[in-house]
């Protein structure tokens, strides 16, 4: 658990970004400062400010439409591909604003990986080629390096034993859960500092879900994770911290409360958080 003092989001809102970046808290790898996302001028996420502690699992929870996924995709600049999307505010990765122009999006994305709702291995590639695809995108050519990275990423994703003898098979031969672990391995091979996960188990059966959750737990001492989930039990099982989001009156998502998972589920400060985690709505 994280033992840094809790600061209400309203207080942080008032902090000028300069003050925040000049004194980065050592444990925070990502700092969101008044992050807003809009599509065609319509606000989807408003003024979200919170910190993501290093080598911890932070869960984004909240009902559908509260902007969790939209916020997550702002953290690796995936909204860049949508011409109508606009992101304001700043996201500091180890103190560098990812929207500041100093960090190229492709470099950013090799440092901040992402796992998607539905497993999306590249079907035209073999299992091996899938795992090393990120390294190849980043210019790694040496076979020994690729082999080494593939093995260690697959071991980390708990997939090595089941695929080591069929590395040249197409990724499509794997089950859904295995495909998702392959996608996690693919992301890990690039050795990202942060791994974003967008409802990574929503397309999986309970057995495969449990294995992914175990995997998240095992990985949490080597990589920082931010996970979007609809599933309250999942959030309470895998995360150290929770950020609760809710759709405002104008249909834009807002951060209601952020804190240690125990506190969010045990004694939340906001009535709306309490209602949500106790299942009264959403």
């Amino acid at each position: 658990m994280v033992d840094q003092p809790e600061v209400a989001s309203a207080t942080l809102d008032a902090l000028p970004p300069a003050a925040a970046s000049s004194e980065p808290e050592p444990e925070s790898i990502l700092m969101l400062r008044k992050v807003s996302v809009s599509f065609s001028g319509k606000l989807a996420v408003r003024d979200v400010t919170f910190d993501v502690p290093e080598k911890r699992v932070t869960a984004l929870i909240g009902p559908s439409g509260s902007g969790k996924t939209t916020l997550l995709r702002a953290l690796n600049r995936l909204h860049d591909t949508v011409s109508s999307a606009r992101v304001t505010g700043s996201v500091l990765l180890n103190g560098t604003d990812i929207y500041g122009g100093a960090l190229h999006p492709t470099l950013l994305r090799s440092r901040v990986g992402m796992v998607f709702q539905r497993p999306n291995p590249f079907p035209a590639m073999s299992i091996y080629d899938n795992v090393v695809s990120g390294l190849r995108f980043n210019g790694v050519r040496k076979k020994s390096l690729l082999d080494e990275a593939a093995e260690s990423a697959l071991i980390a994703a708990a997939l090595w034993e089941s695929v080591r003898n069929r590395m040249t098979a197409r990724a499509g031969v794997l089950s859904g859960g295995e495909q998702q672990r392959l996608c996690i391995a693919r992301s890990l091979a690039v050795e990202p500092e942060v791994l974003l996960m967008d409802e990574p188990t929503s397309a999986l059966d309970p057995q495969a879900t449990r294995r992914i959750e175990e995997l998240i737990d095992e990985l949490s001492d080597r990589v920082t994770m931010v996970i979007v989930t609809h599933n309250m039990q999942q959030a309470s099982r895998v995360s150290h911290r929770c950020a609760f989001m809710l759709m405002g009156d104008d249909r834009a998502g807002e951060l209601i409360e952020v804190g240690p998972t125990d506190q969010i589920f045990g004694s939340p400060t906001d009535q709306r958080t309490s209602d949500y985690v106790q299942g009264r709505f959403g």
């Binding site: 995936l78 492709t106 470099l107 090799s110 990986g113 999306n120 291995p121 590249f122 995108f137 693919r186």
Partner: peptide
């Protein structure tokens, strides 16, 4: 599918 494109971009592909 756009998830294929996003999957590649998210790994740092140009």
């Amino acid at each position: 599918p756009s998830e294929q494109i996003e999957g590649a971009l998210a790994l740092g592909a140009t």
